[in-house]
Computed example of a mutant assay.
Amino acid sequence: MAPITEVEGRRLALSNLEKVLYPATGFTKAEVLHYYATVADVLLPHLRERPVSFLRYPDGPDGQVFFTKNVPPGTPDWVTTAEVPRTEGPARMVLVQDLPSLMWAANLVTEFHTHQWLIGAPGQADRIVFDLDPGAPATVVHCCEVALWLRERLAADGIEAYVKTSGSKGLHLLAAVRGASSERVSEYAKALAVEAEKAMPRLVLHRMTRSLRPGKVFVDWSQNAARKTTAAPYTLRARAEPLVSAPVTWDEVEECRAPERMALRAPDIGPRVRDYGDLLAPLLDPRHAGELP
């Protein structure tokens, strides 16, 4: 039987603790749970009030990987859920509001993905996101160059940008916004992606066409659509190693000369949080939200 653990008064059965989920490093299920417990204080504020989609990989990234938006079977009744509007009809999704819910979800072995809006105002964006995805031989170093251009372009419109690793090959650029629908934010993000391509035609691509991707950075603006989600800050990713989608400083972006500099793993995050706090905390403060022009 799975050991029973009590988390803030909730009883959880935590299973397969010795199972190796990241074979490249021997990182186990117990270490995954420990990681999420360690970063809960900075992760939970970015999950609260946002319907969560799960990318599950219970047998590690080399096993079956599946994406689920609906409330998983067997979800405890104390886990908060909410009805979310969709074009094909409303669905019920999980809200990870507290530590017990986080540890329950982490026990499913999951990446956390969230929309760019809160459950109280579906389709009313409070964030804008750009997913910078390099096509080999381009790397995250080239993404850093594009991120710096986008940072300055957003600043020209009075919008302050923050950056995190994607936990894969690229970067995510985020900013807090107010007073705009997801559709309007998508239009604005696309316009900036097109502008970036015109400014850096040899480096930037705003279209998803795979044949055009090699050697360029695809500026994916489409994740601003109301139905789309993006990997949440501090989530582990289903990769060969326990890579994290982790905030970085703009100094680190400016100084990035090698891809390894942006490969942040679970053991790196605790010390970084102690040194920097949550670098994305301004996204949670309405006073830092900009208005689209």
Results as ranks from 00 to 15, higher is better:
A82E: 07
V94D: 02
M93V: 13
L102K: 02
V96C: 13
L118P: 08
Q97K: 06
S101D: 09
L118I: 08
S101K: 01
F112Q: 03
W117H: 11
T110E: 03
S101Y: 11
A106W: 05
H115D: 10
N107D: 13
V109M: 13
A82Y: 03
E88S: 08
E111H: 05
R86P: 03
E88L: 04
V94A: 03
P90I: 10
H115V: 15
F112H: 05
W104K: 02
N107C: 12
A82M: 07
L108A: 15
H113L: 08
A105Q: 03
V84E: 01
V84S: 06
T81Q: 01
P100R: 00
M93P: 09
A106R: 00
R86V: 11
A106T: 10
Q116W: 07
L95Q: 01
L99K: 03
P85A: 07
T81A: 08
F112N: 02
L118N: 09
S101F: 13
E88V: 12
L99S: 07
V96S: 02
V109P: 01
N107H: 06
L102P: 00
D98H: 14
P85F: 14
P90L: 07
H115E: 10
L99E: 10
L95E: 04
A91C: 05
M93T: 05
R92D: 02
V109C: 13
G89H: 04
D98R: 03
P100W: 12
V96I: 15
L99Q: 06
A82D: 03
E111P: 05
M93W: 06
